[in-house]
Simulated assay, not measured.
Amino acid sequence: MPDQPFAHLFQDTEHLSWAPTEQVRERGRRRTRRTRIAAGLAAVVAVALVATGAVALAGGREGAPTPVLPATGSPTPAAAPTPTPSATPTPTPSTRNTPGAPPSSPSATSGSPSIGSTSPAIPADALLRAADLPSGFRAAGSDLDGDWSFNFAASYACVDTPRLSAKERAERGAVFRKPDASPVIERVQRYSLNGAKATIAWARTVTECKRSKELSSLSVVDSGFAGDGSLLIRFDAEGLISYTLFVRQGDLVAEVWLGSLTNRTEARRLAQRAADRLCAGTDAC
């Protein structure tokens, strides 16, 4: 006689109807597929959350929205959105000139138009060459360091040097040397047209400053002899004499320290060469 628990189990299951074996197997396979799909979706959610957090930390931007999971069963493909035709974009005028097209006009708020090349860069051809100087001078690079500039002379001779309000757009320099002679140094700067004019006016104003030393002085010894504007300025540093030449063509201004070249005729000739050279960097001439 079977044990009592087995007897009760036999009585409870004697009249049950068991599903066919193949049907039981199919139910098992479906349960396995659902489990795998749920696990795969969970992995996708985890990756999306990690990526969202990384983007938020890196760029401070909002993360991507968390995907909504289906409650049960395998995911149903979403219907493809119907593409909406976008409006044809309106062309925006480019700030860069199109080849063959005329240059764009300056902004109404930019003041007077600037006369010069389309690029602020100054070409090498706009600077003096050794052949323009007296015999014996050779090109010696473009290092403009040193106390040669007109600004230095003004700071030495003036109690309070007037400030130049014009802002340069580009600069390029050249140095020429000769044995047993002071160098000739040129700096060419590009401004707006009004800024270039203001630079020449500023240099003249500086020569009228209040002297800081009794034996020092700045004075204009010649003007209006080359280009669109020119000045030849004498600097007397307590008996040490030097000359600075300013020449303007359009929006370009050349400042040339002549050093010991004190001959006015030679200075005028060099000023004319500088003015001619400046024409390679501006369309004002």
Rank of each mutant, 00 (worst) to 15 (best):
Q4E: 14
Q4N: 13
P5F: 07
F6Q: 08
E14A: 11
W18V: 10
A19H: 05
P20N: 09
E26D: 11
G28D: 08
R29N: 12
R34P: 00
R36L: 15
A38W: 10
V45M: 10
V45W: 11
L49I: 15
G63R: 01
A64G: 04
A64Y: 06
P65T: 01
P67V: 07
G73I: 04
P85F: 04
A87R: 13
S94L: 03
N97M: 07
P99N: 05
A101W: 02
P102V: 03
G111Q: 02
S114H: 00
T118D: 09
A121M: 03
I122S: 08
I122R: 02
P123N: 07
L128M: 12
R129P: 03
A131R: 15
L133D: 07
P134G: 05
P134A: 07
A139Y: 15
G141L: 13
L144R: 14
L144C: 13
L144G: 15
L144D: 15
D145V: 09
F152H: 07
A154Q: 03
Y156M: 10
T161Y: 08
L164M: 06
S165M: 01
R169N: 10
A170M: 03
R172Y: 09
G173Y: 12
A174M: 06
I185M: 11
Q189C: 05
R190K: 10
S192V: 00
V206K: 00
E208V: 04
E208M: 08
K210M: 07
K210Y: 04
L215G: 01
S216T: 10
S219I: 01
D222L: 07
S223D: 10
A226W: 06
S230E: 09
R234N: 11
E238I: 01
L240Q: 08
S242Y: 01
L245K: 11
F246S: 07
V247N: 08
V247R: 08
W257S: 14
G259R: 05
N263K: 02
T265S: 12
T265V: 11
R269A: 13
R277D: 13
C279F: 01
A284N: 11
